[in-house]
């Protein structure tokens, strides 16, 4: 249990059995009144957000969350199958569950999966992955200074994102998996 005075942004808690994260937090104390902790909270299972106020002295449950490391093994239809690094237990995650992460997972990649009571809630990939540019318009020479001007590009699995004008087909680039955006160029084609 947390005392409400321990609440802060980013803290993971459990409300009515659901895992939640505090996304915003405000300490209020109206003149001569009691301390009130106003929180914006996101339900990690459903993604919905709501507001909740606590008075001082209230207690909040800790979220029963566990993070385990898995390695990606193989595709099974549309599912991605990972095996637990310690127990070798397998877990299937769908493209829907993985969202854009599905484009960044490669063979033997190690990932951290966050569980709430055996239900997978979230997956963390290595921050950067390297990919070959499969398709983009030819690079514009001498235009490297205006790096905020971008053009669309595609990698082999169909993921589309924006790259600077100097990037060409066959270049190897790094993508930030947290944002899904171009990070930098590793090598030229």
């Amino acid at each position: 249990m947390y005392d409400v005075s321990e609440l802060k942004k980013g803290l993971k808690i459990e409300i009515d059995g659901a895992p939640c994260i505090v996304t915003d937090f405000q300490f209020s104390k109206p003149g001569k009144g009691q301390a009130i902790y106003r929180c914006k909270i996101k339900n990690l299972s459903t993604g919905t957000t709501f507001e909740k106020s606590y008075r001082s002295g209230d207690k909040v449950n800790k979220a029963n969350l566990e993070s385990r490391t898995f390695t990606f093994s193989y595709h099974n239809g549309d599912d991605f199958v990972f095996s637990d690094n310690e127990t070798f237990e397998e877990i299937h995650l769908t493209r829907e569950q993985l969202e854009k992460n599905q484009y960044f997972i490669v063979e033997d990649m190690e990932v951290d999966i966050l569980f709430h009571k055996d239900k997978a809630l979230d997956i963390s990939l290595p921050t950067f992955i390297e990919k070959v540019i499969a398709e983009t318009e030819p690079g514009a020479r001498g235009n490297t200074a205006s790096s905020n001007v971008q053009k669309p590009a595609r990698i082999d699995n169909g993921y589309e994102f924006s790259v600077p004008l100097f990037i060409n087909e066959g270049d190897i680039v790094r993508i930030d998996t947290r944002t899904g955006e171009y990070y930098d160029r590793v090598s030229k084609a």
């Binding site: 209020s28 109206p30 009144g33 009691q34 009130i36 008075r55």
Partner: peptide
């Protein structure tokens, strides 16, 4: 109602 007074002050009045 002390409790309601404080909560409403923070959530509805201010």
């Amino acid at each position: 109602d002390a409790d309601r007074f404080d909560f409403d002050m923070v959530e509805k009045i201010e």
